[in-house]
Computed example of a mutant assay.
Amino acid sequence: MARTFPPDLVQTQRDWMRTYDALARTPFRTVLRRRLQLLSCRIASHPYWTTGTGRSTAARTELRRQARSEELREGRIA
C-alpha cells in the first residue's frame, strides 16, 4: 500500500540514513552521533505520526522503504 508522506519527513529520513551510513564508516565521530540523535527526534516528533494513517507501525517501515528507494534512484547509496 503506497502512502503519501510529507516531503519534509521523507527528506529527514533520507538525511538520517546518510548520517547513519557516515557514522558506520567513521564510528568515533561525536558530531555524527549528535546529528543522528537530532534527526531521530525530528522523525519521531513529526506531526504526521498523530494522524490516522501515521499511527500504524507499518507506516514507519514504509517511510524507510520510500526514503531508501529515493536514495537508490538518485544513486546516493549502493
Rank of each mutant, 00 (worst) to 15 (best):
L39M: 01
E71F: 00
Y48H: 05
T30C: 14
V10I: 13
E62Y: 11
G52A: 10
Q37I: 09
A67H: 00
P47M: 03
G52V: 06
T4H: 15
R33V: 10
L39C: 03
A67L: 01
L72C: 01
D15N: 09
A24W: 11
R76V: 02
T4W: 10
H46C: 04
W49F: 13
T12F: 02
L32I: 04
G54M: 05
A67T: 00
S40D: 05
T57S: 13
A78S: 07
R65F: 06
S45V: 10
T50E: 08
A24V: 13
P47Q: 02
D21M: 14
S40A: 04
W16N: 14
L23I: 11
P47D: 01
T19I: 12
I43D: 03
R3H: 15
R18Y: 14
A24R: 15
A67N: 00
Y48I: 06
E74H: 01
T30S: 15
Y48D: 07
C41E: 13
M17L: 12
T51M: 03
R68G: 07
T26S: 10
E74C: 01
L36V: 11
L23V: 14
D15S: 11
R25Q: 14
M1S: 07
Q66M: 04
R55F: 08
R14H: 15
R64D: 06
Y20R: 13
P7V: 12
A78V: 04
E62A: 07
R34G: 11
L23N: 09
A67G: 00
Q66P: 02
L63Y: 09
P47K: 01
R76L: 01
R64P: 03
S40K: 04
R25M: 14
T57G: 13
L72S: 00
T61R: 14
M1Y: 04
R25A: 14
G75Y: 00
T30K: 15
A22H: 12
A22C: 13
R35L: 08
D8S: 10
A44H: 06
R18S: 10
R34K: 13
R76P: 02
R29P: 02
R33P: 12
G75I: 00
M17F: 15
P27W: 07
L63P: 08
S69V: 03
T4Y: 11
A44S: 09
W16L: 15
E74Y: 00
S40E: 04
G75A: 00
L72M: 02
R3V: 09
D8H: 05
G75V: 00
G75K: 00
A44Q: 08
R60K: 12
R55T: 08
E70C: 01
T30V: 13
P47E: 01
T19Y: 12
T61C: 06
M1W: 07
T53W: 05
W49M: 10
S56H: 07
